[in-house]
Design a protein around this nucleic acid. Structure first.
Lengths: 310, 310
DNA sequence: CTGCATGCATCAAGAGAACTTATCCATGAA
DNA sequence: TTCATGGATAAGTTCTCTTGATGCATGCAG
């Protein structure tokens, strides 16, 4: 015995509308079905209940006593369901859960999210961060920003910015050693997190493949933004992503001695579940952030999206 | 846009069970469907809402925030629906609406219904009467007892008793004219409702085709039971159905001078909508009343039913 | 009183949804 | 590692539901 038959939900919906409108035809109109279908569903329900629910009067139907007993409760139940669905749809549309790496969150999102909220004033943004790459199947998250190669099955990724890196330090620190003219001059300074592979790569590209970094004291701060603070404080030279520190550069707190930038092939990506690509709030966030990163382009171009082959 | 799709009821039911049980598989078991079907329905609902409702954890599913928002309301709504259905089913099973002619109701049902209630103590009987033949499509009635030919489209009829008739009077009235020996003797008495065609028919069959009834004063009482009361009171001779007055006959309040009974081809029938023939309470009433009218038979024989050709 | 409009019932046929079967995959436990 | 559990996916099938045509009864208008 199928539960679905033991509890004819669709018939109950039809019954609710019919009881309210007092007419099979009108109920059919409201529900977008034919009068025939209404008649059929009501009959189903009556068979299920074991009692007629409507008296078939000449040009109208009227509830029987049994029907009158049932109608208000059914109406109430559907009212609740309608509310619940509406509430959840609303919630779904008006709250956006963003996950990001801490660095991107503090260095970029924190400064730009205001513009998103201006554009979508009725979307409440919540931001969570972690170094780890979250699993959309295990966390309640709408969109994420992560660095990597953009190759995640089931997810759509849009490139935001490449993760370039170049040495940066406080201007005073540079002056303290008479200025930084060649890459080798950097080795006169304390190097923040010399174990970072970015350093090796950068020095190699800068023509200093033999830079001895391994022997230097390790000072891993975990997140780039912490290293940036340290560099600003004059504690050493850090290898940073310049895009994250426009203000510090503009205000002369950070100094980038060389144009040369390294890039390890990683980028920051906007990522979301491909299945949810049409969700308005996700679409809205995508359009906004792509536009932010492509100020010259008239609009965001979703075609740059990258969907991992599964 | 179909309402039915805009409001996925079946998916909501599946969601309710799944949220409660925390497992697609278990929900499928409870609902009598496969895990696959549950998965499908949940996906439908998630598409509809625009948000995932469950986090797919390795060996269990867990509600997302959105799901947690939705679940309790849905549960409440279904609780109400379940209650409503149960209530209405119960009401449907435990109340029996009988319609009858006033005569049959007062002369037969009133005296026998007690035995039905003994057999079905949890069925609440309600009895309505009218001379007119009710339309099952217009009145809330489960079973009816009516006289006629048993030929009603859409209805099933079981013959209960034939509507025989024979003159009856109070014994004292009979003595007052020196006893009633021949049908003609009846003409010495006041005849109650001489316009009743039963009289004509009976006198004809009794060999008195020329009985002058038309000229007698009319005294239509409307219902046979009223005429019986008048006869018992000695006000005249009435043409009655003896089966209705076993007590009055046994106690000597009514006297039937002749064995001869007329019959106009009408009978009393138990009638109900053929579509509802399997309703337990209707079945119960049918079995009971047929048994009452067939005391010799070991059980009622529904095969005597008569369904009018449509 | 006749003809028309309304509203529901019935029927056969068809579309499409819902469900099943078969498989696969990931995870956690033994 | 291997097994057991629980879910996802794909394809095929079943069957509910819907549609459209038709009929009937009633009430209203002329």
């Amino acid at each position: 015995m199928k539960m679905s038959k033991q509890f004819p939900l669709n018939a109950l919906r039809v019954f609710e509308a019919t009881a309210r409108l007092g007419s099979f035809t009108k109920a059919g109109d409201e529900l977008g079905m034919t009068q025939t279908a209404v008649s059929y569903q009501i009959k189903l329900l009556e068979q299920n209940v074991g009692e007629p629910l409507f008296l078939r009067r000449p040009r109208q139907v009227q509830l029987t006593k049994t029907g009158e007993l049932l109608a208000p409760k059914v109406a109430e139940a559907f009212e609740i369901l309608r509310d619940a669905m509406a509430g959840v749809r609303d919630e779904a549309e008006t709250s956006l859960l963003i996950h990001s790496t801490p660095t991107f969150a503090s260095q970029w999102l924190a400064r730009h999210l205001g513009s998103f909220q201006l554009r979508h004033p009725n979307i409440a943004v919540r931001l969570t961060t972690s170094e780890t790459i979250i699993d959309f199947n295990r966390e309640t998250v709408d969109v994420a920003i992560r660095s990597g190669t953009g190759d995640w099955p089931g997810l759509t990724s849009h490139p935001l910015m490449s993760v370039d890196f170049t040495p940066m330090m406080s201007p005073k620190l540079a002056e303290s050693v008479g200025g930084i003219r060649t890459p080798r001059d950097l080795l006169k300074l304390r190097i923040i997190d010399p174990g970072d592979p970015w350093w090796t790569q950068w020095f190699t590209e800068a023509g200093v493949p033999d830079a001895d970094l391994a022997s230097r004291p390790a000072s891993r701060l975990g997140a780039q933004s912490f290293e940036a603070r340290a560099a600003i404080a004059g504690q050493g030279v850090a290898i940073l992503t310049p895009e994250f520190y426009p203000d510090d550069i503009a205000l002369g707190r950070l100094y980038q001695p060389f144009e040369l930038r390294g890039n390890d092939g990683h980028q920051y990506w906007l990522v979301y579940q491909t299945a949810r690509r049409n969700s308005p709030k996700i679409k809205g966030f995508r359009d906004w952030i792509l536009n932010e990163f492509a100020p010259s382009a008239s609009a965001a171009n979703p075609d740059t999206a990258h969907q991992a082959a599964n």
